[in-house]
């Protein structure tokens, strides 16, 4: 369906534009302004040009070293949690009950961790992991592991990762579940007639249909884990040492802890730029996927996922798109 060109549509978009511009553009200008200056307190500012940016990208300086180290830690963290959460989320989505009251029950429990305030998520795991009063820490120590997330780097990482898996796997699972629900019953019947194996059904029908939601899931999880702050801050405070200091934690330390506005602003801009680039890739891939889908659907309506020629839905059973 073609959209009509109508410049008056801007009036409809104006409220959103104003609200977001107020919250985004003004602060961003402040950040750009600060990033070029140095301050010695008392609201006295000195022009520093691109000095902070040079320092930021040079690992030999204090600022640059801290930034690049936290960036590395953050990337590693994002990769690890993606590698765990995406497959686990798919498995959980495939394990959802088919119908009845258990579906609603599972959905509610799955969504529960998503609605817990982030600092409370931190608190829950802070308590749960403690060797003296927490079940996890107590059991691990009773089993003979010397587990203590306050003093041991590896244990701190383990706790933060398990916490993130606990917190966000549900999001991936719910997204995949929504994707699975949109597969018309006819596809499964066709596969059954063909005697397709369980794995073939997954590879030829379910995975292609989940493509789009999986893309959303991966990118949302990447973004959110890349700017994670509250949960690890509550649990480990960035420690022991600096071992769980991610970029946001480093940034807040510099900005609100040391009130080093210039450095913090420069870091913010570079950080924002990285996110913006990833976001742009995300957006381009998504819109292109949408166009491809449309073209494919128009040229050959019935055979969207083409598992095998024989897997076409039985004509009598019209594919029902969009299950409510």
């Amino acid at each position: 369906m073609d959209k009509t060109v109508n410049q008056k549509a801007w009036f409809l978009v104006l409220p959103v534009f104003l609200v977001v511009a107020f919250s985004a553009v003004l602060p961003l200008m402040t950040v750009v302004n600060y990033s070029m200056q140095d301050t010695f307190g008392n609201n006295q500012f000195f022009w520093n040009g691109v000095g902070w940016f040079k320092e930021l990208l040079d690992p030999s300086t204090d600022l640059g070293g801290r930034f690049l180290a936290s960036l590395g830690r953050n990337l590693l963290f994002s990769l690890v949690i993606l590698a765990i959460e995406v497959p686990l989320g798919i498995v959980v989505a495939l394990s959802m009950p088919r119908e009845g009251w258990t579906v609603a029950a599972c959905l509610v429990i799955l969504a529960l961790p998503l609605l817990i305030p982030w600092n409370v998520v931190g608190t829950i795991w802070q308590i749960f992991g403690r060797p003296d009063i927490g079940l996890l820490g107590y059991v691990l120590n009773a089993m003979g592991f010397d587990y203590n997330y306050v003093s041991n780097d590896v244990d701190a990482w383990f706790t933060v990762i398990v916490m993130d898996v606990w917190h966000w796997t549900s999001l991936v699972a719910l997204l995949c579940y929504a994707g699975l629900k949109s597969i018309p019953e006819a596809y499964y019947q066709a596969a059954q007639i063909d005697g397709a194996s369980r794995w073939a059904v997954f590879k030829a029908i379910q995975l292609p249909k989940m493509n789009r939601v999986l893309l959303i899931a991966v990118l949302l999880r990447f973004m959110d884990s890349f700017m994670i702050y509250t949960e690890p801050f509550v649990v480990t405070g960035g420690g022991p040492g600096n071992s769980t200091t991610f970029v946001s934690i480093e940034l807040v330390k510099i900005a609100l802890g040391q009130f080093d506005l210039g450095k913090a602003a420069a870091l913010s801009l570079v950080y924002n730029l990285i996110i913006l680039i990833v976001c742009w890739i995300f957006y381009t891939v998504m819109t292109n996927a949408g166009v491809e889908r449309k073209v494919q659907a128009e040229s050959e309506p019935a055979a969207e996922p083409k598992p095998a020629a024989a897997l076409k839905p039985v004509p009598a059973l019209e594919p029902r798109e969009g299950v409510a």
């Binding site: 950040v31 702050y229 970029v247 946001s248 996110i275 913006l276 990833v278």
Partner: peptide
């Protein structure tokens, strides 16, 4: 997608 930490101080 912008990290909240970036905006904390300007806000």
């Amino acid at each position: 997608m912008a990290p909240a930490a970036v905006y904390a101080l300007p806000f």
